[in-house]
């Protein structure tokens, strides 16, 4: 039995903007590193700093509407830069750095490629805390979910092929479609918020109304994201039960 507590993996705390791949010194020749991924002097690959967030790692601003084609192109370009295949003839130290960098790059791309994961990551990054994990239904769904639990219970204890079982299945299937539609609505709403967020960032105002708007957007996205996760898990349960 594992006797340990496991913290949710925490994204790195927020950091000042414009701190690109912050490194002071090349691990190999000890000269100041000015290049992006390699030391200008000795041309050795440099480790991606632990403080580098995924947006910085892939060279994108903290925006929520990213062009997937550009993201992929950048991922491919950086894969060609860091992949261990190209370090086989290099020193063990460089091989280790390449392996670590490639792993970070892969995680960064996986996170940013998916709009929902990207938003969850950005919200965590901006608010400096992990995402909420909802254990009870969101208020607007409370009664519906309670009713659904009862139907599920009845379905589980019924004979699948009986009249009752078939009727309950039909009810559950309708319910599933309803919830899936609800999730799509939430996602559409989220995408509108993503655009709002990006516009706010692009304006770059440092006024207090802008700060209030920022906090409001973050809170709204955070709530919607956790509601969406909750609904998704209910839908998955539902699908597994009636499958």
């Amino acid at each position: 039995m594992l006797n340990a507590s496991m913290d949710q993996q925490t994204p790195e705390s927020p950091q000042p903007r414009g701190l690109q791949m912050a490194r002071s010194m090349c691990w190999h020749c000890q000269s100041a590193v000015t290049g992006e991924y390699f030391c200008d002097r000795c041309v050795k690959v440099q480790p991606v700093s632990k403080e580098t967030d995924y947006f910085t790692c892939l060279g994108f601003p903290r925006r929520l509407t990213l062009d997937p084609k550009k993201l992929e192109a950048k991922f491919y370009e950086l894969s060609r830069t860091f992949h261990p295949d190209f370090y086989q003839t290099k020193s063990p130290a460089e091989q280790t750095i390449s392996l670590g960098n490639a792993a970070v790059l892969n995680t960064a791309y996986r996170t940013l490629r998916d709009p929902i994961q990207r938003a969850e990551y950005l919200v965590a990054l901006e608010t400096g805390s992990v995402k909420d994990i909802r254990t009870s239904p969101p208020a607007e769904l409370f009664e519906e979910i309670l009713e659904l639990q009862d139907t599920l219970e009845a379905f589980r204890s019924s004979e699948r092929d009986s009249q009752e079982g078939r009727e309950l299945r039909t009810v559950l299937e309708t319910e599933q479609r309803g919830l899936e539609q609800r999730r799509q609505e939430m996602e559409a709403q989220l995408h509108r918020l993503f655009t709002d967020w990006d516009q706010l960032q692009d304006r770059g105002e440092a006024t207090s109304p802008a700060r209030e708007e920022r906090d409001r957007l973050l809170k709204h996205m955070r709530d919607l994201l956790s509601n969406r996760t909750y609904v998704t898990s209910i839908v998955n349960d539902l699908a597994a039960t009636i499958a």
Binding site: N3, A4, S5, Q9, P84, L99, G100, V104
Partner: peptide, 20 residues
């Protein structure tokens, strides 16, 4: 390559190991 990090701690005072 893919990596994941987990933080482990103890539940009992003076515990000297965690089995994984």
């Amino acid at each position: 390559p893919a990596s994941a990090k987990e933080l482990f701690t103890t539940y009992v005072d003076g515990q000297t190991g965690v089995d994984i």
